[in-house]
Design a protein around this nucleic acid. Structure first.
Lengths: 192, 192
DNA sequence: GTCTATATTAAGATAGAC
DNA sequence: GTCTATCTTAATATAGAC
C-alpha cells in the first residue's frame, strides 16, 4: 500500500485505537503513537492537531466497526433470537482480549467520565448503537413494551462480565456467564 | 480535633480516596490533594513519599470500610438471604454517586489494569472480600456447590449496572435492575 | 512538622528548515 | 509532507530554610 496522506491518517487511527484500548486514553501519548506508527512526533501534528481530534477519529472508527458487526449479525442470524445470541457470543469470541483489557467500549466510557471529557457523549453512541439494535431484535420477538429494558439488561450483564473477567483475569468465568445469559434469553423468549 | 501527624495522614487518605473516586488515580495530582487538604505540596512529602504509597493507603482504607459494611450486614440481616439483599440494595443507597462516578471498586480496578499498576492485586482484594462474603451467604443457604459462581454472578451484575448507570447517567435504570436482581435471588433460593 | 524554592521529567503543542 | 528543534506547562519529587 502506498503511503498517501489518507493511508497514514488511517494507520494513526488504527494504532491509536489499539493503544487507547490497551493502555487507556490518558496513558497514550503522542510519542507512543508516533513511535508505533513510525513517524516523528513533529510530523504527527500535520495529521492531527490535538489529542481530542484523534479520540474523535477513534470513536468514529469504532462506530463503523460496530455498525458493520451488527450488519453481519443481521445476515448471519435469520431469527431475532439468533441475532441476540450473536451479541452474547461476542464475549466468547473476544474472551482473550477481554480478560486482558476489558471491554473497549466500557473501559473508554469509564475513563472519559472520570476525565469529564467532552467526547463522553460521542463515546456513548457506541453503547446507544448496540442498545438500539438489541431493542429492535426484542421488538421483533414481540416484546415491544420491555424491548429497551431487555436491551439494557443484556448490555449491563455483558459489561459486568467484562469488568470482572478483566479484574480477575478469568476466561472461564466468561464461558460460565455466557451460558447463563443464553439460558436467560431462552426463558425470556418463552414468557407469555 | 488536634492536627497530629496521624490526623493529617488520615485526612490526606480521606481526601485522596474521594478524589481517586471522582477523577481517577492518574488525574489526581499531589497539588490537587494537598490543596484540598490545605497543606503545601512540599509538606505533603513528609507524610507520603510516593503516589503509589497513597494509593495503597487508600485501598487499605477502603478494605476497612468494606469489612465494616459486611460486619453491619451480618448484624442487620438475620437470614442469609436478607444479608444478600443488603448487598443488592447498596446500589440503591449509593445511586446518586454511582450515576456520577460509577462503582469505586470497579472503576479503580479498570484504571489500574490499564496502568499495569503493581497494586492491581491489592485493589482486587476489595472484590475478593465481597466475593468471599457473598459465597458464605450462599453456602448458608445450602448452595455450597454453586456458592462461588452465584457470588461472582451477583458481583458481575452489580458492576454492569454501575457501568451503564454511569455511562448514561441514569438512576432509574439502577432501580429497575435492582428489582430484577431481587427477583433473581428469590427464584435462585427456591430452586431445588 | 511545615514551608519555599528548585530539580527533573514528560507531556501537548508550535516554528521553521528541508 | 516530514523532519529537528524548541516552547510551555504540569507533574513527581527533593533540598534546605525556618
Amino acid at each position: 500500500m502506498v503511503d498517501t496522506k489518507e493511508n497514514i491518517r488511517e494507520k494513526i487511527i488504527t494504532v491509536a485505537d489499539d493503544l487507547f484500548y490497551r493502555n487507556g486514553y490518558v496513558q497514550t501519548s503522542f510519542s507512543t503513537i508516533s513511535e508505533a506508527v513510525g513517524i516523528s512526533r513533529g510530523n504527527f501534528y500535520y495529521h492531527f492537531k490535538t489529542k481530542d481530534e484523534i479520540l474523535d477519529a477513534v470513536i468514529n472508527r469504532r462506530m463503523g466497526n460496530v455498525q458493520r458487526m451488527l450488519d453481519q449479525w443481521e445476515t448471519e442470524g435469520k431469527k431475532p433470537e439468533d441475532r441476540i445470541r450473536c451479541f452474547i457470543n461476542i464475549l466468547l469470541m473476544n474472551k482473550v482480549k477481554i480478560k486482558q483489557f476489558g471491554c473497549p467500549i466500557g473501559t473508554l466510557s469509564t475513563e472519559l467520565v472520570k476525565l469529564e471529557h467532552e467526547s463522553q457523549e460521542e463515546a456513548n453512541k457506541l453503547f446507544t448503537l448496540i442498545r438500539g439494535w438489541l431493542r429492535d431484535q426484542f421488538i421483533a420477538l414481540g416484546k415491544k413494551k420491555e424491548a429497551d429494558e431487555l436491551a439494557m439488561h443484556l448490555l449491563a450483564r455483558s459489561q459486568g462480565i467484562a469488568t470482572l473477567a478483566n479484574a480477575f483475569h478469568d476466561e472461564k468465568f466468561i464461558k460460565n456467564e455466557v451460558k447463563q445469559m443464553n439460558e436467560w434469553l431462552e426463558s425470556t423468549i418463552k414468557k407469555q
